[in-house]
C-alpha cells in the first residue's frame, strides 16, 4: 500500500512512525514544506528566554525519520490532490505526480488573522512556526544590538498571546498586551484564574490592556503603532488571535470542509481514501482537537485503523493543558 502524508507536525510524524511500526511493506511518504525537521510547536512560546532554542526545538531530524524507512520529501508544497487518479501534485517541477492508496492530511493550522488586520500584514509578526520564530529572533537581536530592548505589542490575550508576552517579559523586553475581552484566556480559564494570570503577567512587567478595540496598525518611521482610541508606538507587533486550520488543499479538491476538514469518527473525509487528523480535522461534534495529547492519540489510532488493528471509532482521550506562562499555576482545570 502507498501511503502519502502531507505535513510534518506532530500529527503527520506520529502517524508515519506508528504506521511504520505496524508494517514493513507499505510505502510511506511524508511530504512537507518544512526544511528544519520535526520540531516542538509548544516550545515556540519559549522562543526568547532560551538561547539555544533554534537547535533544541528540533525533536527529530528528517534524516532520522528517513533512517526509519519513511520517505521524507521536504521543502515541497503540495498544490493539488487529484482524486480521480489518486495522485498529488507538488510545486517542485521535476516531480511527477505521486500516487497514493491512502492520503493523510496533517496540514495543521496557520495563525488566524482577523479580517480587519489583513491589510496591514507587512506591519506585524505572527508566531506560528519555527520560520516565524527565527524571523522574530533575528529582529530582536538587531534591535538589541543598539543596546536597548525592543518594545513589543502583543495583540490577543489568549493562550499563545499570554505565553509569548510572558516569555518576552522575562527575557527583559517591555511588553504591552492588548486583549479584546474583559479577562485573559477567557476560553480556557475560570474568572478567578484569569485574575491570577493577570497578576502574574503584571508582576513580570507586562502591561496588560483589557477591553481593547484595536482598529488597525500604522507605521511611523521605525515604529509601528497600534490604533485603539489612542495610538501607541512600538518596535514590533505580534498578532496572536487564534488559529486557522489549513483547509485550502481539501477545498480545492472539493472535500467537505467546515472550520476544519470534515471527518467521521474514523478520521475519514468525504473521500474514503483520504483521512485528516490534528489541528485541521473537524469531527462530527464540530470539535477540533488542537492539543498534543489528543493529536498523538489520533495519530496512533489512525495508524492502527489503517493497519486493520482498530475497528471501533476513535474516542477522544481525557486531556488537559497548561499555559506556559512563567510563574503561573491555575487553581482550576482548564476548559479544553
Amino acid at each position: 500500500m502507498r501511503i502519502i502524508i502531507i505535513g510534518s507536525g506532530i500529527a503527520g510524524v506520529s502517524f508515519a512512525e506508528k504506521c511504520r511500526s505496524y508494517s514493513t511493506d507499505d510505502e510511506i511518504t511524508l511530504i512537507t514544506g518544512e526544511n528544519s525537521g520535526y520540531y516542538s510547536r509548544p516550545l515556540l512560546s519559549r522562543g526568547f528566554s532560551k538561547d539555544d532554542i533554534e537547535q533544541t526545538i528540533i525533536l527529530k531530524t528528517f534524516d532520522k525519520l528517513r533512517a526509519n524507512n519513511i520517505n521524507v520529501i521536504s521543502g515541497v508544497k503540495i498544490t493539488a490532490i487529484n482524486r480521480t487518479d489518486k495522485t498529488v501534485t507538488s510545486s517542485s517541477q521535476d516531480d511527477s505526480p505521486l500516487h497514493y492508496d491512502k492520503l493523510i492530511l496533517a496540514t495543521g493550522s496557520a495563525a488566524f488573522i482577523p479580517p480587519l488586520f489583513r491589510p496591514y500584514n507587512e506591519l506585524f509578526f505572527c508566531l506560528n512556526s519555527l520560520t516565524d520564530l527565527k524571523a522574530l529572533r533575528k529582529f530582536r537581536s538587531e534591535i538589541t544590538r543598539q543596546n536597548r530592548p525592543p518594545a513589543w505589542a502583543i495583540i490577543g490575550g489568549g493562550l499563545i498571546g499570554c505565553e509569548v508576552a510572558s516569555d518576552l517579559a522575562v527575557s527583559g523586553d517591555p511588553v504591552t498586551l492588548f486583549h479584546a475581552m474583559d479577562r485573559l484566556m477567557e476560553r480556557q480559564l475560570v474568572t478567578e484564574d484569569s485574575a491570577l494570570l493577570l497578576e502574574v503577567l503584571q508582576k513580570s512587567g507586562v502591561k496588560v490592556l483589557l477591553n481593547q478595540n484595536v482598529k488597525g496598525f500604522s507605521k511611523q518611521e521605525n515604529k509601528v503603532c497600534v490604533d485603539t482610541n489612542v495610538t501607541i508606538e512600538f518596535d514590533a507587533l505580534i498578532v496572536s488571535c487564534g488559529f486557522k486550520p489549513r483547509t485550502e488543499l481539501a477545498e480545492l479538491a472539493n472535500l467537505e470542509v467546515g472550520r476544519g476538514i470534515k471527518v467521521n469518527q474514523s478520521m475519514q473525509t468525504s473521500d474514503e481514501s483520504i483521512y485528516a487528523l490534528g489541528d485541521v480535522a473537524e469531527f462530527p461534534n464540530g470539535k477540533l482537537y488542537a492539543f498534543i495529547l489528543p493529536i498523538r492519540n489520533q495519530a496512533h489510532w489512525l495508524a492502527g485503523f489503517i493497519a486493520g488493528q482498530e475497528s471501533a471509532n476513535w474516542t477522544p482521550p481525557v486531556f488537559t493543558t497548561k499555559a506556559k506562562v512563567h510563574g503561573f499555576e491555575a487553581a482550576h482545570p482548564y476548559n479544553v
Binding site: 506532530i10 516542538s40 509548544p42 519559549r46 533544541t56 526545538i57 506556559k324
Partner: peptide, 12 residues
C-alpha cells in the same frame, strides 16, 4: 532530559 513528545524541560 526533555519531554520526548513536546520538548519541554523536566521541570514541567
Amino acid at each position: 532530559w526533555r519531554c520526548p513528545e513536546c520538548g519541554v524541560e523536566k521541570s514541567e
